[in-house]
Design a protein around this nucleic acid. Sequence first.
DNA 1: CGTGCCATTGAGCATGGTCAACTCATGTGG
DNA 2: CCACATGAGTTGACCATGCTCAATGGCACG
Lengths: 262, 262
Amino acid sequence: MPMRVAIAEPPCRPLPQNPAARSQRIPQRPDAGNRPSDIAVRAAASEIRKVSAGVEIVSEFDDCDALFCVLSGWMILKRILEDGRQQLLDVALPGMFVGDPTGRCRSFGYSVAALTDAEYAVLPKRRIPELLRASPSLTSAVLDAAYDALNSAYDSLTDIGRRTALEAIASYLYRTERRIRRAIGCRSDGSVEFPLTQSMIADTLGLTPEHVCRMLRKLKDDGVLQLNRAGLHFLDRERLADLAGVMPEFEDDDFDELDIAV
Amino acid sequence: MPMRVAIAEPPCRPLPQNPAARSQRIPQRPDAGNRPSDIAVRAAASEIRKVSAGVEIVSEFDDCDALFCVLSGWMILKRILEDGRQQLLDVALPGMFVGDPTGRCRSFGYSVAALTDAEYAVLPKRRIPELLRASPSLTSAVLDAAYDALNSAYDSLTDIGRRTALEAIASYLYRTERRIRRAIGCRSDGSVEFPLTQSMIADTLGLTPEHVCRMLRKLKDDGVLQLNRAGLHFLDRERLADLAGVMPEFEDDDFDELDIAV
DNA sequence: CGTGCCATTGAGCATGGTCAACTCATGTGG
DNA sequence: CCACATGAGTTGACCATGCTCAATGGCACG
């Protein structure tokens, strides 16, 4: 759909560096790293790695020889077309698995880059069947993560395919903020960290950065939200949900009690 | 993005009835129903159900109290916005699981309808943890299906978000045909059954039926493919892959030997 | 204090949507 | 067996959402 084609760009252009992403101290849920699933993952991991913001840890056609689990920080999953167009598939927050535990895929199918400084656990592929059999809680964590990712992808499909730009942005921010609160937590003022640039939002929703900027301006001017390097803050949740076309009656808010102060 | 809004349509409009879908005899892989995963599913199922084309077996906000596995026929997963716009999320071919084995989702999050006459197995939700623990091959089938669905969703995201209408349609048909050959098989002339209407393709790719029609016309006139109620037949696979922007070098064709005559 | 990237704004344009007919195949009921 | 209803597929003329291109301001970092 978008005809802007970056002609000679290298296939793996470096991740745009949002300066805030690097320096930002990342708030963590108090239980981060100690949830039952985290314990299962840490027990199963052959190695824990740290990466700095911007580093690509997997590229699309790499052999899929391990399963990763994000422990802290943000990762980004994306696919890049030959002519430079790119589609962000998802953000991977702490708790999410990246890779293919089934052993049926040769390659990852997408590239994975650290958006902020991050830590992740490495589960070597050949040990996965044995690990899954030995640890039901690991199996359940993997399944949970897979279905979270699938639901998130279905949400994105609906946003991109059948919503206007404004609706899509509202909906994306709305549901992404919930995932952030859930996986990382929110600050005492109700805002959450949000290291994605407008360009990345555009690449997530099949829009151009310019148009994202225009629509965000509208949301900001209408007093619906604040969004900048400092984070994302909803001022009028109800109006945002309305714009997003979300039916609030079906929201489960059982994670609100997990909010943390930062 | 699309502004065509069906104002007073009921939220669950009946599935368009492609007449071919009802009467068509469905070719099956010779091993259909006897793959290791099928055996595991049949052993675990509390019930096998048959539905006729057009029946909605799950609607979006239904309690997610069971996990289903498609045994034969085609199902469709879709989400419907209040104003009637709808997004097809995926087709479910034999072997695919529908629902949420993690037990964390209250509702399905999408509606599921039989596109053709179909059979599916029912795994009651409360028995799932026990079943997964007891049967590694069931666990592995569930995981496989989840990652297949996830990859398919990622493909769709890329198609909708970052490809033109023509590219998206080419890419969608290309990869969907492979999934059909894999799950169901192809006919001796190389064609596969294809009960989706142009409207459904439009609802999958975020386009209008009219535009899908125009783009398909181009593909047909250029001798790239044939598509009608009888099925989908690629005449020039290479050109289609080219239009789709698929890199053929990374295709694995290890399932070709499974082709069946019909 | 320049360099780079992100965010912003504006003017013009194109892909794909809207609306409205019409054809054709299938299925139904008299 | 034919008239009719239905809905998929098709085509054309027009139009709008969102893209392209271009230029600017601002903030971080070296």
